[in-house]
Structure formats: structure tokens, C-alpha cells
Design a binder for these strands. Structure first.
Lengths: 114, 114
DNA sequence: TCATGCGCTATCCTTTTTGTAAGTACTATT
DNA sequence: AATAGTACTTACAAAAAGGATAGCGCATGA
């Protein structure tokens, strides 16, 4: 068990903020979790995640900038683009699975009338 | 290792959204991480987290509604209030520690020039 | 009595986020 | 030639989030 002193919590606060800066917001983690089922095209991703092109475009750029997603343009005639998770994105696995787990568990708690 | 099929990811997507609905946003997780060093009064919390009273009030209410924080009024004359984490909030430990860990690691990566 | 601290709430305003609808460029299909 | 699908971008609008400032009721200490 970890101690929770004022100092250690100040550090924790910083770390959490850093994380939120990168994957906070409504869509980033959702997109990553969707991309875990494999690389996807732009419109495909838009449909599966239920996100409008405008936002999707922005979110993907940010994820790319942070090295979590890579964009690959195919040699096909009507350009096709594939977005996929990078190796680095795997460092987020713990965060992802913890959140999935909690979400499921919390939902159960809610359903069972608190 | 887990499989990442389209279906399992749809479920994951939902769970992540559920989690974000409860602890998403700029402050909730920060507040929780600050409260881990012990119960705190309103102004104390406001200072330590660096959050304005208006927002703090709102965030605390939401955290309370979701059973993550409890508000306790003291018997003292100028009313004193203590906010503290509930037992249920401990179910978030995994999420918190994963995010702290990631935040620290990511910051290192950035500092070491990517 | 006046300033100070506690725990807020109210008001107002700016910034950020998200969304909608439409349009662009290109190509394959009908 | 018209339609549709890929990958976006642009313009505009609405909503949500966040922040600054002030003030209120109460009580203690100077």
C-alpha cells in the first residue's frame, strides 16, 4: 500500500494532469479503444465511434502528434488512409483496461439500484 | 492477452464512456487524487487543487452524487465542512495509479526529447 | 468595530468543445 | 452523366466548461 502524503499527492496531481492533457476529453480514449480491433479508415472510424468528421479529424491529428496513432496512406487510386495504433499506444493498456473494468463494474452497481 | 474484436471493442467503448461520464473532465480525478492525502475543507481544497470555488462546488456535488466523496459538517460554531473519499472511491485506485504511472512515464519520454 | 477566515452562491463573461451542414477533390461504378 | 464512396475541410452555431469577482451569513481575534 502506498502512502498518501500531501507531497506525494501533489506529484500525483501533476501526473494525472499530464495524462489528461494527452488522452483527456470525450473522444481520445474511445478512439483508441475502437482502434484496438484493428486499423480503420477515416469514414469507418467515424461511423464506428459515432463521431463527426470534423472532430474526428482533429482528434486523430492530436493522437498522431502524441505518437499514439499512425496515419498511413495507401497506394490505391482514390486515396485510402488507414489509422492504426502505434506500439507506444500500448503503454496505455493499463489505463484502458482499468477504465473498462471500472466502467463495467460501476454500471452494474447502478443497475442493481445503487 | 485479450482479443480485440469489433464486438468486444464496442463493449469497451461503452465502459470507457461510462467511466468518463463519472470521472471525466478536468477536475474530478485531480480532486480525488488530492483527497487521497486526507480529508479537507472547502477552501483548503480550493487552494490545494487550484480550483475556483464555483467549479469546486459543482465538482464536489457531482462526486458526492456518484458516491465517491462524502461531505461532513462539523459541530463547530463557524460551520466547518470536511470532504473525504468514500470507500467506494477506492474502486478507482487502479484507474488512478495507472494514470499516475502513465503520466510520469510519458513526461519522462517528453523530457528526454521524445 | 473592523478585518479575517470559513463555506459557499450568484453574476457575468471568455474559452473550449462539440456538433451540423455543406462543400472539395478524386475515382470507380452504374 | 449521375451517383456514390473515400478523406477530409470550412463556416457557422450551440452548448458545455471554466474562470474572475463579489458578496452573504456567521464567528473569532485584534
Amino acid at each position: 500500500m502506498k502512502k498518501h502524503t500531501v507531497e506525494s499527492c501533489a506529484k500525483a496531481k501533476l501526473a494525472i494532469r499530464d495524462t489528461l492533457d494527452v488522452v483527456g476529453g470525450k473522444w481520445k480514449l474511445v478512439l483508441i479503444s475502437v482502434l484496438r480491433s484493428g486499423k480503420k479508415g477515416f469514414n469507418e472510424l467515424s461511423r464506428e465511434a459515432g463521431i463527426s468528421p470534423r472532430i474526428l479529424s482533429k482528434e486523430l491529428q492530436e493522437l498522431e502528434m502524441n505518437g499514439l496513432v499512425s496515419r498511413k496512406v495507401g497506394e490505391t487510386k482514390p486515396v485510402t488512409v488507414q489509422y492504426e495504433l502505434t506500439d507506444y499506444s500500448e503503454t496505455l493498456n493499463e489505463v484502458l483496461t482499468a477504465m473498462e473494468k471500472w466502467g463495467n463494474q460501476h454500471r452494474q452497481k447502478i443497475i442493481l439500484g445503487n
